[in-house]
Design a protein around this nucleic acid. Sequence first.
DNA 1: CTTATCCCCTGCCGGC
DNA 2: TGCCGGCAGGGGATAA
Length: 268
Amino acid sequence: MPELPEVEIAARRLRESLAGRRIAAVRIVDPKLLANAAPAALAAALEGSVIDRVERRGKYLLLHAGSGPVLLVHLRMTGRFLFVEQAPETPGHPFRCLFQLAEGGVALFRDPRRFARFELREDVGGAPLAALGPDALVEPPDAARLGQLVAGRRQSIKALLMDQRRLAGLGNICAIEILYRAAIAPDRPAGELAPGELASLAEIFPAYLEWAIARQERRELVYLGERGAENVFTIYRRRGEPCPRCGTAIARRVLAGRGTYFCPGCQR
DNA sequence: CTTATCCCCTGCCGGC
DNA sequence: TGCCGGCAGGGGATAA
């Protein structure tokens, strides 16, 4: 799932359903979930404590428990928290981790592809957060700042938008949809974009993020893989369908290692 | 320094 | 119905 909009919504749900509650027990089902410590370390850090603050930075979730270590959560492709009254007994609901709350209720961490990672860090100043560029939602770059980011870069504009060290939060779908709205071809070398195109990008992508967050808030943006999920995107996963702007068939190619949808007719 | 490729994993979908 | 290839919102490691 997660790009910035989904991670932002995940942070809001965690503030509603997890923050302020005491964690009675932590159960790690999949020992590979915790990237930099033993499962016992997570239990020691969280059991008996209260998550008092939840932050988002780029695609990372930060769960603070008082003065203890911070738990970094990266959802990667399929990670998500579910809040339920009781831990499921049947194996029909596999989960990688479970937080039992003292006042009742359970937070489950589901992640079918098992790419997601938890990390315990003493502070937020070092790796991996220090490597992130400015947050695409909190500090959206204006045209001038974008100009600095792309200056001299031969890398494709799509790869640059997805590079978390330059700008944190955008992923494959965001990059595809934003470049479509700006009518810029995804494989254009970033450094060759004209000032007017940078201005167009700078205007479009905060608006796109707000739109996606609002949609997700209304629970309209769901995994495409979920039963009954509808593709709400303009061109993502619409190869062969006519472009809404010019009618040309939407094309797909692999760029920066990811499936990239674009309109060969009007994205220049 | 870049960029490209492979890898990590499971699940769904469409075609045959 | 069953099998198989393609595809999937992430990034890290490695090679060139």
